[in-house]
């Protein structure tokens, strides 16, 4: 599997490493994907890197690669963001993978081996949901709202109604809320706020977890929040050019 830029892998690692220390990557002809729970079992994260994300991709037999994020991060730090990355896994030797970074300008090439782990894989079935509300907005804006309100209080409430979408946090000595309304005057789709819902709803989530989830803003200019009563929120970042996505399901806080 050959990626045109290592930056994509670096960003994916940054987006999951606070939640997941080790995970199985499933490789098949469609691409590379992973699903993992954090140790508290409060967030489920899914990453899909489709074949389209790669400059070249070949997977003759489906394989599972058990990756320890810490050494993987150390290896990735050795790659320049615009260097090409080739990941090689051999079906005859499933003990490790090889990573080759190529800097075409400098005619430099570096090679690394990463030992694979035998991880007890657990996979959760995510039902196809009819969401009660969907909000799409610039990922940078969502990140700023979450980062700011997480300083105010540890509970982040998201309410969707005819007024728009309201994010609220309450702390011991302060409270803050931010309201977004659907944008009408913005031309660029990536800068638009779009809100759809069937019934008004209000749900509360742990702000520290939501903060970790906003790290994926580096992977996509837009984010989609899908909510339904008594269901984890789905926070989805679609990468450009059908390259894949990262999705987080965060369990709500309830009475």
């Amino acid at each position: 599997a050959r990626l045109p830029r290592s930056a994509v892998l670096k960003k994916i690692l940054d987006s999951v490493k606070d939640l997941v220390k080790e995970t199985n990557w499933d490789c098949n002809e469609e691409g590379m994907s992973m699903q993992a729970l954090d140790t508290g079992r409060i967030v489920l994260v899914e990453v899909m890197l489709r074949e389209a994300a790669f400059e070249s991709y070949a997977c003759e037999v489906p394989m599972t690669l058990g990756i320890d994020m810490e050494p993987f991060g150390k290896v990735l730090r050795c790659a320049g963001g615009d260097e090409k990355v080739t990941i090689k896994a051999s079906r005859n030797d499933q003990d490790h993978i090889e990573l080759v970074f190529e800097n075409e300008e400098k005619e430099r090439m570096s090679a690394f081996e990463l030992k694979l782990m035998d991880i007890d894989g657990e996979h959760m079935a995510v039902p196809d949901a009819e969401w009660g509300a969907e909000i799409s907005m610039p990922s940078s804006e969502f990140k700023k709202i979450v980062m700011d309100l997480a300083e105010i209080g540890s509970d982040l409430t998201i309410a969707v109604s005819k007024l728009g979408v309201t994010f609220t946090a309450q702390g011991n000595n302060c409270k803050g809320s931010m309201v977004l309304q659907p944008s009408t005057a913005v031309d660029k789709k990536s800068e638009q706020v779009a809100i759809s819902f069937t019934e008004p709803l209000e749900m509360t989530f742990a702000a520290p977890y939501m903060k970790m989830i906003t790290k994926a803003a580096a992977l996509s200019s837009t984010v989609t929040l899908s909510l339904d009563e008594a269901c984890p929120i789905c926070v989805r970042y679609e990468m450009e050019d059908n390259a894949g996505h990262i999705k987080y399901y965060l369990a709500p806080k309830e009475d």
Binding site: L37, R41, M124, A125, D155, P232, A251, K253, D255
Partner: peptide, 14 residues
């Protein structure tokens, strides 16, 4: 006060 629910409260293992 609110209780933090778990993913297991909503999704089942495959």
């Amino acid at each position: 006060t609110l209780r933090q629910s778990r993913i297991d409260d909503f999704f089942r293992p495959t």
